[in-house]
């Protein structure tokens, strides 16, 4: 079948503002949007610019706004989108570098700000740090994040206030705050108790809906909020 792919394009060297361009491509229902973008790039317009790496939903580099919702181009199939017209645009809320490529520096700066690495308080043991299965289960969900930014850039609180640390950073803080082997939870909770921290969440659930890994992001954010309240009580 033939699909009309409407792509929001922007070349900073040529365009004043982004504009939509339409491409007709032959597709099968099992093709992914990434396959269609490849067809456009390889067969119709080599200047089309987008990020992709593993192409299998693991690296998180091809998150974009597809039919009005943030998704990974390599995970969403044509048959799942229902219809013969597909719109593709860059992730909302981040500066566009070119076409579907956004500048993710601020996103990764926020990720780094929550100290997303293990900080054990005790000296290094001779063997691995052991952890009970039930302790591991507390943060199992938030270990799945691939930093694609689909969640943060789907959040209206982030659109309104770009200084908001955002769902992805909170998810990655959650992963260590609830890790029994870590000893820096208090520092992270202080960072997230800031006015640009967890309190900007308005339980809108766009982040949870957008996450290609199915992480219960809003639950993680509210668990961190509760922990901050507990910490300050």
């Amino acid at each position: 079948m033939q699909i009309e792919l409407r792509i929001l394009r922007f070349d900073p060297e040529r365009d004043q503002k982004p504009h939509e361009e339409s491409y007709k491509v032959e597709a099968s229902p099992m093709d992914r949007v990434l396959d269609l973008l490849h067809k456009v790039k390889y067969e119709q317009d080599g200047t089309l610019t987008f990020r992709r790496s593993c192409a299998h939903g693991v690296c998180g580099s091809d998150a974009m706004l597809i039919n009005g919702r943030n998704r990974l181009a390599c995970k969403i199939r044509v048959d799942q989108l229902k219809g013969k017209r597909i719109t593709v645009a860059p992730l909302p809320g981040l500066p566009v570098t070119k076409d579907l490529v956004v500048d993710m520096d601020s996103f990764f700066a926020k990720f780094r700000s929550v100290q997303p690495y293990l900080q054990p308080g005790d000296p290094d043991p001779e063997r691995e740090r052991r952890q009970a299965a039930e302790d591991r289960a507390k943060f199992d969900d938030t270990t799945k994040c691939i930093l694609c930014a689909a969640c943060t850039t789907s959040c209206p609180s982030f659109w309104a206030q770009p200084s908001y640390v955002g769902p992805a950073a909170i998810v990655n803080a959650h992963r260590f705050i609830f890790d029994s082997r870590d000893d820096a939870a208090e520092a992270r909770l202080e960072i997230l108790a800031d006015s640009d921290g967890v309190w900007r969440c308005r339980t809108i659930f766009n982040c949870t809906d957008a996450c290609p890994r199915g992480i219960h992001i809003t639950q993680a954010i509210l668990e961190v909020s509760s922990k901050i309240v507990e910490h300050h009580a």
Binding site: R69, S154, T203, N206
Partner: peptide
């Protein structure tokens, strides 16, 4: 973006 993003029940509830 607020009017173009296709959120689900959570976004409608908030709006």
């Amino acid at each position: 973006m607020l009017f173009r993003y296709r959120g689900s029940e959570g976004m409608l509830a908030w709006a």
